[in-house]
Amino acid sequence: MKNIKSIILDKYNTPVYESLDHHIYRNTEENISVTALSFELEADEDSQYPLEDLLDQFNLYISGFIHPDVIESQHLSLEFTGNPEDLRDFLKSVIGKRVYNKEVEGEDGKIYVKLIIE
């Protein structure tokens, strides 16, 4: 994943949403915190990995596909939901970075997949 950018959805400018922090909003009806990102998948990536590893690392889940008709595209925009602190850490960690999985050899000689954020 590359070219990771925070986006502000039009729905965040309605009374249903209140701003908690820079690019983090709370849906007052559902009492959930959300943020949205756009990013580009690299040639060897699919829409599952490394995205799933990021979700696990930051305790988040995808609450919406911004443009569901382009799910098969290399350019995705997604809404993420989670604890506000986890969302803050997530945004600080990935905005403007490159995120990918890399195979590494463990001390036991086995091959493992490691999430890299650079």
Rank of each mutant, 00 (worst) to 15 (best):
V70G: 03
K97I: 02
E105D: 07
S93D: 09
Q57P: 00
V70Y: 10
E42Y: 06
D46L: 06
V113M: 12
G64H: 04
E42I: 04
H22A: 04
I66C: 05
P68V: 03
S73A: 15
N13T: 09
N27P: 05
S19P: 11
N3A: 13
L20Q: 08
E52Q: 12
I66M: 04
H22C: 03
L54C: 12
S77N: 07
Y25M: 04
L76M: 08
D89M: 09
E72M: 08
S33N: 13
K11G: 02
M1T: 07
F58Y: 14
L115G: 11
K97W: 01
D69G: 10
N31S: 13
E52T: 12
P15K: 06
L51T: 08
V94Q: 01
A36P: 03
L87H: 02
D53M: 10
D89C: 07
E118A: 10
K2I: 14
L76C: 08
F65N: 09
D86S: 15
Y112L: 11
T14G: 10
P84A: 07
G96W: 01
N101D: 12
F39K: 01
E118K: 11
R88D: 05
D86M: 12
L91T: 02
S38M: 07
E105K: 14
L41R: 07
N13V: 01
E40C: 06
T35E: 08
V104Q: 12
Y17C: 05
L55E: 02
L60E: 08
Q48F: 15
E29N: 13
L54G: 02
N3Q: 13
Q74K: 15
L91C: 05
D89K: 14
S73Y: 00
T35Q: 06
H75N: 11
D44I: 04
H22R: 10
H23E: 13
I111P: 03
N31Q: 14
D21N: 09
G82D: 06
R26Q: 15
L78W: 01
L91G: 04
L20P: 07
V99Y: 01
R98E: 10
T81F: 07
K114P: 01
I62K: 02
K5R: 13
V99W: 00
E107R: 13
Y61Q: 08
S93T: 11
N31R: 07
I32K: 05
S47Q: 03
N13G: 09
L91M: 08
H22S: 12
P68C: 06
K11C: 08
E30S: 13
S6P: 04
R88K: 15
Y12S: 06
S77Q: 13
F65R: 04
D86L: 01
S33V: 02
D56L: 14
R88T: 12
Y12H: 08
S93H: 02
S63N: 10
G96I: 01
L87T: 01
E42D: 15
E85P: 00
S6Q: 06
L20D: 08
S6G: 09
P84Y: 00
E18C: 11
T81P: 00
E52I: 09
E29S: 13
R98K: 15
I4T: 03
T35S: 15
I117C: 10
I8S: 13
G109W: 03
E52P: 03
D69C: 00
G82K: 02
V113I: 14
I116H: 14
L55P: 01
F58Q: 05
E85L: 10
I4M: 02
S93G: 09
S19L: 14
